[in-house]
Amino acid sequence: MIILSTSDKGGTGRSVTSCNLAYRRALQGSDVAYLDFDFGSPTAGAILSVSGAERGTTSGAGLHHYLQDRVAEPEQIDVWSASEREGLRGRPMGAGRLVLVPGDQGGGEFPVGTEMVDRCIQLFLSMEAEFELVLVDLSAGRSQAADLILSATAARQLQAITVRWLVFHRWTRQHIIAASGLVFGERGLIEAGTERGHDRADLENSIRFVRTAVLDLSSPEMAGLRPPQAAWLQSCNRELQELATKTKLGRTTMLGSIPLDPVLQWREQLISDNDVVFSQIANPQTSQAYEDLAKRLVHDEAWMSL
């Protein structure tokens, strides 16, 4: 299965959430590969605490170079052995493989040609042959990376593979409108995908939204709010719900919602059970949300035709 992570804007929490989903899925026993297609800023190495690959790899064998035919094979970094974080090192019992396929340091966006689409198809085929879950983090918006992926996934060779899209957005007016535009709007994923040979209905059915850094109004922290504050937040939330429904981002197309977490607000990282149980720096709701969403990624019922 290939999961494609995208968002209309930068800073939505797409990379951090995707990394955490990959991590959770691996803990749940799947072999997972994380492909850093965020060509403008490949940061997965930093989130996964892989030293030497914080801003992409320096080996010359990252995805930029692979797609541009400058190296035969993209580098694969085993996160369980390369992570600098004590708590992540060593594969836990029952966990699957967790592999990062990094971008190249200093690589930027590049034009997409037909050869590159072929390379991308080959990459997906070989990754799919090896990993149960291939998670691809794309650059934000109507990017070259999205264009490349839409073309590649329309290819005949990939038709047997399950491909799903996650569109990340924050819980604000601007973000909801932007995410909806990215999917349903002009030159959006569905329009561009259909042009590139995708079946419109199938493509639409394979897209779900993920809300990030959402303030949980029922959480105990909210108890300290003054009543007018709480009331304002409630009404705001209702308005956002309405907007979401109107822009097709409502309950049916939403796959999950990740609460705002103090740790993530200050640092891009994986939330391990350690962070929740022992050091207690992160909220249990956050890790639980990741855990649930990771399961829903592969749960066919959550992806039934709408």
């Binding site: 080959q122 085929l125 799919e128 042959a129 090896e130 060779q157 047997a160």
Partner: peptide, 20 residues
């Protein structure tokens, strides 16, 4: 390898996942 594995004669639905 990619040429062979990408062949249109294959269904690309192997029974198991393995490394190359």
């Amino acid at each position: 390898m990619d040429v062979i594995q990408g062949s249109s004669q294959l269904d690309h639905a192997p029974r198991m996942r393995t490394k190359r």
